[in-house]
């Protein structure tokens, strides 16, 4: 008897989880409902997590941030790799408001690190990222390529499934990627984690039809 109940429970729970997963996958990539506009109450801003990479990545992200309306994407949380001090400095120059926050995260993979040792470092980054995303609970995530963004986006996706927070993930593949996606980009594209996926070269859009071709950001 107890056995049947246990099996029934397992079946029900699994079905619920699978149903929820399918729902989340179905909703991901679909635009949100129009936000209140025209005269009525002012549009509610969305809390935004911005994942910064190193060097060229940060320059591209700053170009994007400079054209986004600051009053719509607020408060803003910046995360950069713990080994990277330059990127947060550059972001600070961009921010006048004190409501923005700056944080650092352990890297899942350094440039040139082998894919095998990446597994271990990714686990550490995942635990740290879990803590950060839990604290921020962003509604919007903007990222453009550093390995740092993968664990953060995966955690945000889990939060969507569990129902802690619904977030929209926007991924801009780096301008340096002309023929092939980066590993980060490939993962977020293949597993449908990014709601919108942008590429800067037409060759990539032809290979990855769900991507949006947006021209060069630099």
């Amino acid at each position: 008897m107890a056995c049947t109940v246990a099996i029934a429970l397992i079946i029900v729970t699994t079905t619920l989880i699978v149903a929820r997963l399918l729902y989340v996958l179905h909703r991901t990539g679909k635009p949100l409902k129009p936000r209140s506009s025209k005269g009525s109450a002012p549009q509610q801003p969305l809390s935004t997590l911005i994942v910064l990479g190193s060097g060229g990545h940060t320059a591209e992200m700053i170009n994007l941030l400079s054209v986004l309306q600051k009053d719509r994407f607020a408060p803003r949380f910046y995360i950069a790799a713990a080994t990277d001090n330059m990127s947060l400095q550059k972001a600070r120059l961009l921010e006048e408001t004190s409501s923005s926050q700056f944080m650092q995260i352990y890297r899942s993979r350094e440039v040139g690190q082998s894919y095998i040792t990446s597994v271990w470092t990714t686990l550490i980054a995942l635990a740290h990222g879990f803590w950060l995303v839990l604290r921020i609970r962003p509604q919007v995530i903007l990222c453009n390529g550093p390995g740092t963004c993968v664990p953060l986006c995966v955690i945000a996706f889990l939060f969507k499934i569990v129902g802690i927070r619904w977030s929209s993930v926007f991924y801009v593949e780096s301008i340096a990627r002309v023929q092939r996606l980066s590993l980060s980009g490939l993962l977020l594209y293949k597993f449908h984690i990014a709601d919108q996926f942008f590429v800067q070269w037409p060759q990539l859009q032809r290979k990855y039809p769900r991507a949006h071709y947006v021209g060069c950001l630099m």
Partner: peptide, 19 residues
């Protein structure tokens, strides 16, 4: 000629339902 990010910003705003 340097490009710019306005096409990306437009798509993001549309997706999120901003006018």
């Amino acid at each position: 000629h340097p490009g710019d990010a306005t096409p990306v910003a437009k798509l993001i705003n549309q997706f999120l339902g901003f006018a």
